[in-house]
Each structure stands twice: as C-alpha cells, then as structure tokens.
C-alpha cells in the first residue's frame, strides 16, 4: 500500500460519504443519477465475488463490504425512500444505462485474462466502472447548475481515479509491479471522462463561483 493508492481509496470513500451526507441532510437526491448509482452497485457486486473465495487483508475486506453495501443503500434510497425519491430528476436521468451493461458484458466475454466466471465478471466490472459516470455527467450537464455537495461528489470520484493511475506508475517503478492492462486502459479512459468536469470545477473554484456546466 503506497500513499497514492491510499489517497485513491480515501477519496473514493469520501465521495460516497459526501453523497450520503447530501441525501441525509437535504433529504434530496436532486442532481444525482440513479442510473450511475445502479451501475456502481452492479460494478461492486460483480467485482467483489472474490470476497467469498480469497482473503487479502482486513482492510481489503472492509472496503469491499463498505462499497457494496453503500451502493445498494443509495439505490434503495433513491428508489424507495418515501421523502428522498420525490426529488429524483427522473425526466433528466434518461441515459439508457442497460446498453452500457450489455456492451460491457459482450466486451468482457471477448476480452478477459482467463475464461472463468470470476475473471469474466471481474473484466466486466472494470469496463462498466470506466463508463458508469456517464449518466451522472449527462444529468449534470442537462441540469446546468450543480449544487456544492453533488459537485464535490463527482470531484472526489474523479480524484480517486487519478490517484489510482499515480499508484500504478509508482508500483511499476518501486515494485516492478505490472498492473493488468485491462485495468490500465479502462482506468485511463475512466479518468479522461472527468477531464471536462475537472476543467469547469477548477474554474468555478478559482472564481469562487457556483459550478455551472455549459449546455
């Protein structure tokens, strides 16, 4: 565990806490894409199948359980919570996310390291995570104004990916550890998707103004 990897995991955790904080304090999920949250729930459940087959560390197990349970809880809140669900921007959140699931499933069946159930699921989860933010970015762009907590949520998610890339570079030089190329390529694609958002986030931060995305 190096400082970049730890920073990546922590910013990932912070992003989820920020999202839960927003939902809990405002009792609202406006600006949050249910589609993206559903994709993350699918990502974590399919990636962490090794929870039952391999033990890596207490840290690893705890984080996996936290990611699976928090993503399911968030989906439940947006769909079922009697107050929260009223603020869901259903008409803005129309991204056809099951197409992404289908495309990633096909890709995982074709491109994987080993043809086993767990390995194909793992590759699928990596591909799906790379594009899971798309419905959220589309929703933000459509709604124009982004509230602070939602902006911070997306910012921390993007920071998590950027730290993971630094972690891979660090591991390559310090441990001669080669990150799987499936992870590398997907991770770079995933981080690149945030480039536009980061640009406007920093401008609003510099000008001390509200985050607005161009239509």
């Amino acid at each position: 565990m190096n400082v970049f990897r730890f920073a990546g995991d922590m910013t990932h955790l912070i992003s989820i806490l920020v999202l839960l904080l927003k939902i809990y304090t405002t009792k609202s999920c406006s600006g949050i894409s249910l589609k993206t949250q559903e994709l993350y729930a699918v990502v974590f459940v399919t990636r962490y199948l090794d929870l039952v087959t391999d033990f890596i560390s207490v840290y690893n197990t705890v984080m996996k359980v936290v990611f699976i349970s928090s993503s399911l809880a968030i989906v439940w809140c947006i769909r079922r919570h009697k107050v929260v669900r009223r603020s869901y921007d259903k008409e803005l959140d129309t991204f056809r996310h099951w197409l992404l699931v289908g495309a990633c499933a096909v890709l995982a069946l074709v491109v994987h390291e080993k043809f086993s159930f767990q390995e194909v699921c793992w590759a699928f989860s990596i591909y799906l995570e790379a594009v899971a933010i798309l419905p959220q970015l589309v929703l933000l762009q459509r709604s124009g104004n982004v509230d602070n907590l939602t902006g911070q949520y997306v910012f921390f998610l993007g920071a998590y990916r950027a730290f993971y890339i630094l972690n891979w570079i660090y591991r390559y030089y310090s441990e001669q550890h080669f990150t799987r190329w499936i992870s590398c390529v997907s991770g770079i694609v995933q981080t690149a998707l945030y480039a536009d958002f980061f640009y406007y986030y920093f401008i609003s931060w510099k000008n001390n103004s509200k985050l607005q995305l161009p239509a």
């Binding site: 995991d9 890596i56 390291e113 990150t179």
Partner: peptide, 10 residues
Amino acid sequence: SSSSELKDEL
C-alpha cells in the same frame, strides 16, 4: 503477473 495472482486493489 498471471491472472491467478490475487487482486489486491479495489
């Protein structure tokens, strides 16, 4: 690294 190597990243 082989594909049977443990995946230690999240």
